[in-house]
């Protein structure tokens, strides 16, 4: 099966600054992929390249198209929120719906209006009159009403309160996601999306440091919390990262010998957030 997104040696330079440094990754159809990295790691550059918003070097195909040259065709099948709160201040909610319905062949107006009906937002209001959270809700309603094969979300819930965030992710998984769709999402709130992701892409300093399904993460990585007296034995098993927590030391292993580890302490699969910290702090190269 061919990948929905295929990037080989994807490079993006801003003057002398290299934002993406020969990054290689692919995204398969039907997955929910989290693109996770610290600030300045190249997340936004990668998304901008995928969405045809910026020129790049290297090979990149999204839905079989070259994003920069074929952005218009690509946007028939792709929806995105590249950063929140970018709906213009002068735009009225009902006009926004009219406009997208007018220009987008895959926009389902009824879905947008029913999503908005669940909020306090009325049609005649302009974006400048809405709170940041409400603006985001409008944007999400517009985006989720597009029958897209690929949805790209860059920090989609920034500025939303906890209730709205959880409502958004529920809607995304229950009402939107199905086997025909693929979602690529970046967020700083890793814990929040951990349960819905099927795959993770860790990016650091412009390079992909981990490209894995969460199922594989469970078999490939292990974390063991070890008491001080067993630390030397645990270190002998070559952990790639360790951190001190509440008097114990948690050690992280790749391709571990689980039987040996079990004798040292409590073995568990690291959470995405923990693995992220471990991978990026522990000299993942």
């Amino acid at each position: 099966m061919t990948a929905l997104i295929e990037a080989r040696d994807l490079t993006k330079k801003y003057g002398t600054h290299v934002a993406l440094d020969r990054a290689n990754f692919s995204v398969q159809a039907g997955r929910i992929v989290g693109l996770i990295g610290p600030n300045g790691a190249g997340k936004t550059s990668a998304l901008r390249a995928i969405l045809g918003l910026t020129a790049y070097e290297g090979h990149l195909q999204v839905l079989g198209r070259e994003p920069m040259r074929q952005r218009t065709e690509l946007m028939q099948d792709t929806s995105f929120i590249a950063d929140v709160a970018v709906l213009p201040a002068w735009l009225r909610v009902d006009h926004a719906i009219d406009f997208v319905a007018g220009v987008h062949p895959r926009f389902r107006r009824d879905r947008a209006t029913s999503l908005l009906a669940k909020t306090q937002i009325t049609g005649k209001r302009r974006m400048r009159e809405l709170s940041k959270g409400m603006k985001t809700q409008v944007h999400l309603a517009l985006t989720m009403a597009i029958d897209a094969k690929l949805m790209v979300l860059d920090e989609p819930t920034l500025g939303l309160d906890i209730l709205a965030r959880s409502a958004f992710y529920d809607a995304l998984v229950n009402d939107y996601m199905d086997e025909t769709r693929t979602i690529l999402i970046t967020t700083h709130q890793v814990e929040e999306v951990e349960n819905l992701l099927t795959d993770v892409l860790f990016i650091n300093k412009g390079r992909i440091v981990l490209d894995s399904s969460l199922d594989d993460v469970a078999t490939r990585y292990a974390a063991v919390a070890v008491a001080g007296d067993r630390l030397d034995a645990a270190r002998a098993e070559k952990p790639f990262y360790e951190r001190r927590m509440l008097g114990k030391v948690v050690l992280y292993y790749e391709q571990p010998d689980l039987q040996k580890l079990a004798g040292l302490g409590e073995v568990r699969t690291p959470s995405v957030a923990d693995l992220f910290v471990a991978k990026l702090s522990g000299g993942a190269e």
Partner: peptide, 18 residues
């Protein structure tokens, strides 16, 4: 104007050529 207020990112999410 739409680059200044960043709404260009919304307009460019629609299948409309530049």
């Amino acid at each position: 104007a739409d680059r200044k207020d960043r709404s260009v990112l919304f307009w460019k999410s629609l299948p409309i050529s530049d």
